[in-house]
């Protein structure tokens, strides 16, 4: 089994992220997601869509200034979680 890392740094690709997550899970891959920058704006919707199909963390430094106090289902973290995701992922895509 391989791990796909998805960096979500934009709020423009909700459908695409969901499509890739579901396809990756169907193919038997692990999926880890890190959300930062404008990506936090769709964090709650995305986590609602994804459910338990991916391990999700987000950059609290990005979320707080945008008025987002919590992304349900995701770990409130820092760039360390992104570094860990990139380190562990076999492949990385950016949305």
């Amino acid at each position: 089994m391989s791990t796909l890392g998805i960096l979500v740094n934009s709020d423009k690709y909700r459908d695409e992220v969901l499509g890739v997550v579901q396809a990756a899970k169907k193919a038997g891959h692990d999926v880890k997601i890190f959300i930062m920058d404008d990506g936090v704006l769709l964090g709650n919707e995305l986590c609602g869509d994804i459910g338990t199909d991916a391990e999700v963390a987000y950059c609290d430094h990005s979320a707080q200034p945008k008025g987002i106090k919590e992304i349900k289902g995701a770990l409130a973290g820092s760039q360390f979680q992104n570094a860990t995701m990139m380190h562990e992922a076999d492949k990385v895509v950016v949305f």
Binding site: S2, L4, E16, G19, V20, Q22, A23, A24, K26, A27, H29, D90, K91, V93
Partner: peptide, 13 residues
């Protein structure tokens, strides 16, 4: 929008 194909491509590249 063929995400199955995309995931195949990601892991075969």
């Amino acid at each position: 929008k063929d995400y199955d194909k995309l995931v195949d491509l990601i892991f075969s590249s």
